[in-house]
Design a protein around this nucleic acid. Structure first.
Lengths: 214, 214
DNA sequence: CATTCACAATGACTTAAGTCATAAAAAGCA
DNA sequence: TGCTTTTTATGACTTAAGTCATTGTGAATG
């Protein structure tokens, strides 16, 4: 089965070099090329592409932006990011947007081919040295989780109960402090679980804290 | 250049299957086999091995332990972990100990071969679905690193369970992902509750989040 | 005016959680 | 070496949690 590749790289010489390397393997076929993100997106419209080799540094639209748009439009598309050594600043952002691999441009030819196949088989390929640099960045990234004030699909009463669960109260305690019967509390909880798509009070407690209800 | 492989897997049939697959590629050669961690280590002493394919679930000494010992003795050795679907709990531990890849046993043969070569070329190969499960764990791990030794009066095992409760898992799920019986999980929880002076799993979940264990 | 929705309640169930006694292997330490 | 802690396991319990059907308010919305 042939793997159809879109090659996105602004430096023509490098691009040709990559093409040569890739097509040494008869399974791999470069069906389209582009020199920036915008071009790449329009190429995707008119060619069937399995995998994109994407340079990070590019004019017009850079690799990160491009990757994001691509994955939105073609979720099944595989994307391998090509980086030079000092691009790692940008690189980690693409992970969130679903890049399937990172490769140094200075890689051995076989590594490139191997990685393409590996990614097509569903793998995530990260070059060792990049991985080392990337990991700490990913960590930092995940700390700054911004919360958009999402609306909670619950009634007042239900929220009150969610909060008390989030404080670790039992049904009996909740019933007492809200002047309800335990049965009523249970009913509310059953409703909450359905509405929030959760399984038990523990998950409700987690929800409460994560949504800053407690 | 031939890649010398040590195959570690307790189920003989599976092991033979893997061997067959690997040796379809004439670059790959299985030079030794073992059915548990201890055997594997002694095999490493008497054969030149480039890469180890290591099952996580094994009698005597499991994959994690084995990987740790191997990397200590042979830092240049490449290790690919073979997992089933719900082993992810253990999987991330091996990353720290220097595993170079994770593969599902249910993988396609080509994926296996591709990954072996990819790893030998210095890559880190993680299967997509595992990667997805693994990443958030890695994030948490590193965030925690900052204020590392907080006074949590729990054993390693207990902390692992607290974390899983903090993710909203049931006892059954916890048991599965830690390879324990449900009864054992319950026992641990009873101990945790006493040690932390809490009442039920919901309060444990709250504790886990508040103490940034999750 | 009828209908929808939030809220409260009961009873009869099923099941996940948690307790407790007991046991035993493995790891670490004195 | 012997002692302690950690880890795992089982079985027999008790109880809190959660489901479901059904009933009934009052308030709001159309």
């Amino acid at each position: 089965m042939t793997i159809h590749i879109l090659l996105v790289e602004d430096q023509t010489i490098v691009r040709n070099g990559l093409k040569m390397i890739l097509e040494q393997d008869e399974q791999l076929q470069v069906v389209a090329e582009a020199s920036n993100g915008i071009e790449a997106l329009s190429q995707l419209e008119c060619h069937h592409v399995d995998l994109v080799l994407l340079d990070i540094r590019m004019p017009e639209m850079n690799g990160i932006e491009a990757a994001k748009h691509m994955k939105t439009k073609f979720p099944n598309l595989k994307i391998i990011i090509l980086t030079t050594f000092d691009d790692d600043e940008y690189a980690y952002e693409t992970l969130k947007d679903g890049a399937n691999g990172f490769l140094l441009k200075s890689s051995e030819p076989e590594k490139l081919i191997g990685s393409v196949k590996s990614v097509m088989n569903g793998g995530l390929v990260i070059q060792e040295d990049i991985a080392a640099k990337l990991m700490p960045k990913l960590f930092k990234q995940s700390i700054r989780r911004e919360r958009d004030d999402m609306d909670i699909p619950l009634t007042e009463r239900e929220i009150a109960i969610v909060q008390l669960i989030g404080e670790g109260k039992t049904n009996k305690e909740i019933a007492n402090s809200l002047f309800l019967s335990v049965g009523t509390v249970k009913n509310h909880i059953t409703n909450i679980l359905h509405e929030l798509n959760l399984r038990d009070r523990t998950q409700i407690a987690i929800y409460a804290i994560r949504n800053e209800l407690v």
